[in-house]
Design a protein around this nucleic acid. Structure first.
Lengths: 225, 225
DNA sequence: ATATTGCAAATTGGATCCAAAAAACACAAG
DNA sequence: CTTGTGTTTTTTGGATCCAATTTGCAATAT
């Protein structure tokens, strides 16, 4: 048997790279909602033909991150306040449950790593990094649940609303409250109190949602002035 | 302004048709797990080139219904018992909540339609139709929740395990119990007892899962005989 | 007989080309 | 100045073609 790269790790196809790059850019808000994604433009950015770009866009549409109209191209999906609220409501149902499952078997090492992310989140000065650190903190706690399907669902839901969440974090008091709530969640995890950790997570998500919705309702008046 | 078909409804692209056809065939179990899906073969079936087929396969992979390996093609995803259990556990978390939300505003008309599906399910002699009727019954009750994101998630989860569920239905006593449980759920809905309807739905899903897993554990011994 | 190597066929991933539709634009009429 | 119409340009959806990789098979050596 010859040993080459494909034996070690399956080489990522071009569309995988494009998909991941666009997915992250959309989730982070680097590409604003409503912005059109031209196949040709993206193809040139990655030095490929339009074929892998179309595959990436297809996958993004399946994930709900872009909306495509026939012969009109893809635009970054924009969510109504109602849709945003629904995704948060969904997260508030799933994530506490996953954390509960996770705590039943969580190791001290995992807790220590989560604590590291929480501290990095709390002390990071660059607000552009808050979103990633927030995600890492929660994910680290969820991973121990060993529920790949749940985690995938959570990731998809968070991808949809992450750019709004990041906007909420930089609001006054948004970051302060997140810091405190992370600490409380972590304490409950360390105490192996699944019930309390779940309830705190639920409140954490719903609180962020409320704060975000209030913010959006005062700023979003594009139609009907 | 000229009026033509595209004004009335956006014409479905070729890949939409292929995607829906394959998705249903996989969910229903008409294409067995592990079966390879040759691009060329499917393309000829639909009288198109491989391009729209590849788009459909890409979307199916994003939905988790097929698994693709680079240069090796796509195969219908096969789930381990653990993975099946996780999807059912997920459904048992989501669906009761959606039903609870739905009951808060459900109309008598919707209940009548759901009753119609339940009766059709209970009296249908052709076992091949049980799966669809089962789905329609539950969906009709969920729709009134007006939660498109939840519904989409439920559909994706059910697509993954529907073929197993259909196999479980035709097991002895599987159909009998489903009939009774549907009636109980319907009664609770008619009484607008969201709490009871949710708990019955949860038991309905978990019961089917247990029955299915027992069945699979006795029949599935392909490795290590 | 079995394992190994080399070649041919089959299959996928990607590039290029073409047709269909939409958007942008120019221009005439009211 | 606005509105409507015809034309050009842009962009997407799909077909065809080519390269990269895998798979099947045959020939050979042990």
């Amino acid at each position: 048997m010859k040993i080459n790269a494909t034996n070690i790790a399956q080489m990522a196809s071009a569309s995988d790279v494009i998909f991941d790059a666009l997915r992250e850019a959309i989730a982070r808000g680097d590409i604003g909602e409503g912005q059109v994604l031209r196949q040709d433009h993206i193809a040139r950015m990655f030095n490929v033909s339009r074929i892998p770009v179309r595959e990436a866009l297809t996958r993004l549409e399946e994930q709900g991150l872009v909306a495509t109209q026939r012969y009109r191209g893809a635009v970054v999906a924009s969510l109504s306040i109602e849709e945003i609220r629904e995704v948060f409501e969904f997260r508030a149902l799933i994530e506490p449950e996953v954390l509960r499952l996770s705590i039943a078997r969580i190791s001290d090492d995992a807790l220590a790593e989560a604590r590291g992310f929480a501290e990095a989140f709390a002390t990071e000065a660059n607000s552009a990094k808050w979103g990633d650190l927030n995600r890492q903190f929660h994910y680290r706690l969820y991973e121990e649940a060993r529920r790949p399907y749940y985690l995938q669902t959570i990731r998809a839901a968070l991808d949809r609303v992450d750019r709004y969440l990041r906007a909420q974090l930089v609001l006054t008091s948004g970051m302060d409250r997140a810091r405190q709530e992370h600490q409380q969640i972590l304490d409950a995890c360390i105490a192996r109190d699944g019930e309390r950790a779940a309830e705190l997570t639920r409140a954490h998500i719903l609180g962020a949602c409320d704060s975000l919705v209030r913010f959006l309702e005062t700023t979003r008046r594009p139609v009907g002035a």
